[in-house]
Design a protein around this nucleic acid. Structure first.
Lengths: 206, 206
DNA sequence: TTAAAAAGTCGAACGCGGTCGATTTTCACA
DNA sequence: TGTGAAAATCGACCGCGTTCGACTTTTTAA
């Protein structure tokens, strides 16, 4: 049986996370102060620091839950028979729609995931692993169906696609894309480019 | 002739930038407080806010100078006759070596450039334009030499390569790469992948 | 020349994330 | 069951970026 300490610890962690979910969702991450968060969780401000090292660590824990949910939803709706580019397109667009629902939320998450601080490297890799796993599953099937080269390192292929997603996300935050249609067609174009290669084809000429 | 106000304005802007260059270079961005910066520039702390809206705006102005210098250096040493992948590799590795010289400096810059805040979108696009221009020059020549498809939008090709650079930079901050050799070979592998395409070649079979 | 408007300046203060140190609660063990 | 060690808690506090409001300097226009 677990000790009093362990029970309380779990209880308080839950209280903090629930307060975070409520407040971050309602008024946003940056608009929520640690003071408020603590009050909502029914503890003192500095007590939080016994559970999380920084505010952004709480944010990432919050994101982990949300993102799990989105991935589950996406994988439920994903069509394993669809062509590779379409499956990846659907995966990334699902994520995109989700993280950009609240403008600042997506930026913060993307920042921590792509260029994490020392303290958040671990969590960031954890979350990134969700992306990689989702991609691996798709890529495996694509290799089996002869849609994808089998002489490449899976990590580099997954990374390649992931990089294009990040590019589109970045372009959105830089307002290079305005509408969802632009996003969709831009992403599709990049994915197709990656598949076909940038080198001229020597189909007819050679 | 310019008014007293305009002269003073220029003078103070210069003073702030010089203080920023000195202090950021010496002790780093985060270790330099606005208080110090103001003292070094010989003005009051809140006066700075008449010249820059935020601390990170000063940082980006500082970066702009530095990055210009690095690009100039790189373009001076660049060999216009080298193969496309090698030229791009050299360009990105030069940037990489520079921005990761100070660990946190690179992360901050990359964060602001890839996922800028509202206030820094403009500056971020300005700096990104340097990358695009440098790439365009290389890509133009590659198209002329038949190394690169000419049926693609240049922005998307440049973006594609840029995305792979960001990926490598990100992987470095996530400690997926440890040594400079890993970085170099990783980047090269990704660039080659992009050139060749991820789809199986139907050279012999079809 | 002058006086009202506009722009620039800066000390004081605010709100925030995070730390410290004294106090209380829990644990391990006799 | 008692006791010293370890862990948890929280109010007070720190340093920071940024804002405010009163004051000074410069411009504009009659």
């Amino acid at each position: 049986m677990q000790s009093i300490r362990e029970k309380k610890k779990k209880q308080t962690t839950r209280a903090i996370m629930e307060a975070a979910i409520a407040l971050f969702s309602e008024k946003g991450y940056e608009q929520t102060s640690m003071e408020e968060l603590a009050r909502a969780a029914g503890i003192g401000k500095s007590t939080i620091y016994g559970y999380f090292r920084t505010k952004s660590e709480i944010f990432l824990a919050f994101c982990e839950d949300e993102i799990d949910f989105v991935f589950a939803e996406l994988s439920r709706r994903s069509d394993p028979g669809a062509p590779l580019v379409e499956r990846i397109h659907a995966l990334f667009m699902g994520q995109f729609r989700y993280v950009t629902r609240h403008h600042d939320f997506g930026r913060l998450l993307a920042r921590e995931m792509v260029f994490p601080k020392e303290l958040t490297v671990e969590k960031s890799k954890d979350i990134q692993q969700r992306y990689l796993s989702a991609l691996y599953e798709i890529l495996d099937r694509a290799v089996a169906h002869g849609e994808l080269r089998n002489d490449l390192e899976p990590l580099f292929v997954a990374g390649h696609f992931y990089a294009l997603y990040i590019l589109v996300l970045s372009a959105w935050y830089e307002r290079r894309f305005e509408t969802m249609e632009e996003i969709e067609s831009g992403l599709k174009r990049l994915l197709t480019q990656a598949m076909e290669g940038l080198r001229p084809h020597r189909s007819a000429s050679e």
